[in-house]
Design a protein around this nucleic acid. Structure first.
Lengths: 120, 120
DNA sequence: CCCGAATATTGATAAACATCAATGTATTGG
DNA sequence: CCAATACATTGATGTTTATCAATATTCGGG
């Protein structure tokens, strides 16, 4: 303990010289913060944001890997890697049809992420 | 629709065997994606999310470092480091009054971040 | 049943990151 | 001025991350 603050009990006297609030503040729990951070980690990369943008605006709302490799100027394994991160984060849905894998936005996932920020 | 792809505008020639769309898709630019990724990088850490939550819900809408070190169970330098990242990302505002540094939310910054996701 | 195409996985490497201890800086009170 | 307090910066360290080349897997066609 480094300083005066943190008076959990007995605020009574006041005349408090400290800088700090009464420490009764409601805080985002560590576990939930961890879960939410995983989601934003998935969004914290330029190429993944571009992937989401391309998929969202693609005709039919879906795109295969071959649609995504060229515009990003990344190798195919790297694109697959990013797509896996987005799927694991619950942002993209993957459907294999024949040889191709089609990726589409999970409905409401981006709005949910946005909602987290608004309600922090 | 078993396989062949998403041709929106039917660009004449083609006879294309590929799985891919005509590559006319509007894409989030690399530069803007980079800027936006910086913002989400700042949000992609549990402790920084908790910092934002504490500051937002603090009495008076502001909190000093001593309010933040204890609930996160991090060293003071680490908290200062995270706060700097949030300030650099445009999410927090820093005001020094006397010996203390008070941090507060930049108005609308979180909503702007949320808006990016909605409008991807 | 084998071949080629589309995608996924593995292994390696360099860069970025989170964290703390130690130290620096600035400001207040005596 | 001096000392103490609040915060920032620096340096070091272990972990995570982005990327590619090489390889594996899976599927449709002949």
């Amino acid at each position: 303990m480094t300083s005066l603050p943190t008076l959990e009990t007995a605020p009574a006297a006041a005349a408090d010289d400290s800088c700090c609030a009464p420490a009764g503040t409601p805080v985002l729990g560590a576990e939930e913060a961890g879960r939410q951070a995983l989601l934003f980690k998935a969004l914290a990369d330029p190429n993944r944001l571009r992937l989401l943008s391309i998929v969202k605006n693609a005709g039919g709302g879906e795109a295969c890997v071959c649609d995504l490799t060229e515009p990003l100027d990344l190798s195919q394994p790297t694109v697959s890697h990013h797509l896996k991160i987005l799927v694991d984060a619950g942002l993209l849905h993957r459907e294999k049809r024949g040889t191709w894998a089609y990726y589409s936005l999970v409905t409401g996932a981006l709005d949910d992420a946005a909602g987290i920020l608004s309600k922090l």
